[in-house]
Design a protein around this nucleic acid. Structure first.
Lengths: 329, 329
DNA sequence: GACCTCCGATTACGCGCGTTAGCGAACAGG
DNA sequence: CCTGTTCGCTAACGCGCGTAATCGGAGGTC
């Protein structure tokens, strides 16, 4: 044990006050009158000693922690997700909360266990959790679990809608949809597909012809054949990687893009702009989404116990997915 | 507050024993004799109540926590890193440890703060931390900080060496190296480049012609021109994304791959096999690396206080980067 | 019967902190 | 001089848990 921990008693002794006073100053507890002189001495002592309250003791005493746990589902992590995480962490840090992430993919251990292990007071997921999981998380100490049932799906549908609308606006009347092979994407893919289907309905078109495309050239080539049989001229891909597979399939068939078939992806990964041809894609500003999520968390946490009770709908709809036009459409 | 927390007292009451006995059983403390009957009743009660020890209280009392904090540096998260994280989480979970990750990119908050906030007993980074940071982390409650100065760089060099050796074995005598544009990659890129340079030296060749390639077609096209002037016929790219950019640059120039120029990437991202042509790449088994890291952590933790003191060298060298031959070389 | 031993379980303490009740001092009003 | 009253601060409790110290009782020895 090379270094001994600095406790609040150390700070109190250094500042010549009681431990309670230290606590009051550092948490600037409202309604407590502290002499300016004493406040200054406490802050100074804390700074000099590089005092950092022991998280465990704090959350044990206060009954709540500053930790927000982000549960990332079992899906490939791309630039999109990591940017979302960064933005969320920044936004939460501005409110004194600390974001930690846990990848479900690993089967590392059950989410409630992790939640208990870090003593998280908030658990944030991508899509909503089922009722049993929510119960378990609450038993594991989480005050708040997001997103609630209603939110979270809307932006996904919006992405799908934009993809389809873009193709329709460019004259395509028979659309295809490339579903991802990875089973963990199924739920999200369903939402995005629904958005595309809605757009088709609004335009008086048939729903997209759905085909599952694995991230291999052979699988994509098969999909192309299926779409060609159905006279599909434009394909929405679940995400950019799936779109790259579709592109590879078209290349395999010796077809031109977008002449023979147009392709639109989603998420704008770095490889999208480097494809041949550069990939048109739909991306959404994760900065806004993350900041809004953070706000939801903070307000819900402030209105203690009002868990999962917030409007959110209109705000979520204000996130702004948009088309990045390149050469594949 | 919809659900009340289950405490060890609840379990004790349900099992008809004292709280201490519950603690002994659940941590199966060695040297403590417990009746088989009582042990059974405690385990049963804990299971029935879905008891989960309160992490904060536990670590406060025991003076150590089960949390391992992985500090991910400010660099784009790709499939490689996420797989590493998954493997590490799984391996640690097998030893009862919980992995949480924190992205430095966000400037969410200083690492020591985060370390204190989750009360981590181990902090794992990618490259070694400087001395001041290590000190700060120890003051923040970390018992162990990895990797130490010596380890971590070796596998990176190995990757670069394999790339170059592969190209050399296929007859290329004048090599190029594509450095990443993102500044955060600089350090890692330097290591990989060093490996490639070593391979060239071993084969009696000049060092690779280095050019920085941003993830845009124009930047890549410029790089191609530079390499062509120097009669380069084979290019090692820092990673697959950079390699895709090089491929796009070659396409822009109307050059053939690998006829006019061969390209080898690194990390084997999903998009690599979907490129035109499919990208030859070097990937290393993160499963092994992660498992070894986990072992280092566990043993160092067991030999309490023996922080950062372990062999590790030979084991690290046993990780097995290997070439995945596709059509770009 | 007095005494020790060993087993099995319990009681009691403290980890570092937030927080409430309460204390002395200073001061105002009666 | 006594009684409030406010201000500034502190003593003391408890959060849930690990664990050292302790204790009752069964079994053995002198």
């Amino acid at each position: 044990m090379p270094v001994k921990r600095i406790t609040s008693s150390d700070v109190a002794r250094a500042a010549g006050v009681s431990r309670a006073t230290v606590s009051f100053v550092l948490n600037d507890k409202p309604g407590m009158r502290i002499t300016e002189e004493n406040r200054r001495r406490v802050l100074e002592a804390a700074r000099d000693l590089d005092y950092r309250p022991h998280a465990s003791a704090r959350s044990l005493a206060a009954g709540r922690s500053d930790v927000v746990l982000l549960a990332i589902p079992d899906l490939p992590i791309g630039a999109g997700i990591s940017r979302f995480v960064e933005e969320l962490a920044t936004a939460l840090a501005a409110h004194g909360l600390t974001l930690v992430t846990h990848l479900a993919a690993a089967h590392g251990r059950p989410l409630p266990d992790v939640c208990a292990a870090v003593d998280a007071s908030v658990v944030v997921g991508f899509s909503s959790f089922d009722q049993d999981t929510v119960q378990a998380l609450h038993r594991a100490g989480a005050d708040l679990v997001l997103p609630s049932e209603t939110e979270g799906a809307a932006p996904m549908r919006h992405v799908g809608r934009l993809q389809a609308e873009h193709l329709i606006s460019r004259g395509h009347r028979r659309l295809g949809y490339a579903l991802p092979g990875h089973p963990a994407f199924r739920h999200m893919a369903g939402e995005r597909l629904q958005g595309a289907t809605d757009a088709c309905a609004s335009a008086g078109l048939e729903p997209p012809v759905t085909v599952t495309v694995h991230l291999e050239i052979a699988s994509a080539a098969q999909a192309i054949s299926a779409w060609r049989e159905q006279a599909v001229t434009g394909v929405c891909a679940f995400n950019d990687e799936t779109a790259l597979a579709v592109l590879a399939g078209l290349h395999e068939h010796g077809l031109t893009v977008p002449g023979d078939m147009a392709v639109v992806g989603a998420d704008d990964i770095p490889a999208a702009r480097l494809a041949a041809p550069p990939l048109t894609t739909v991306c959404w500003d994760l900065h806004d989404v993350a900041r809004h999520r953070a706000e939801t968390i903070v307000t819900s946490l402030a209105g203690a116990g009002q868990a999962a009770h917030h409007t959110g709908v209109s705000a979520d709809a204000s996130t702004n997915p948009h088309v990045i036009q390149r050469s594949s459409t």
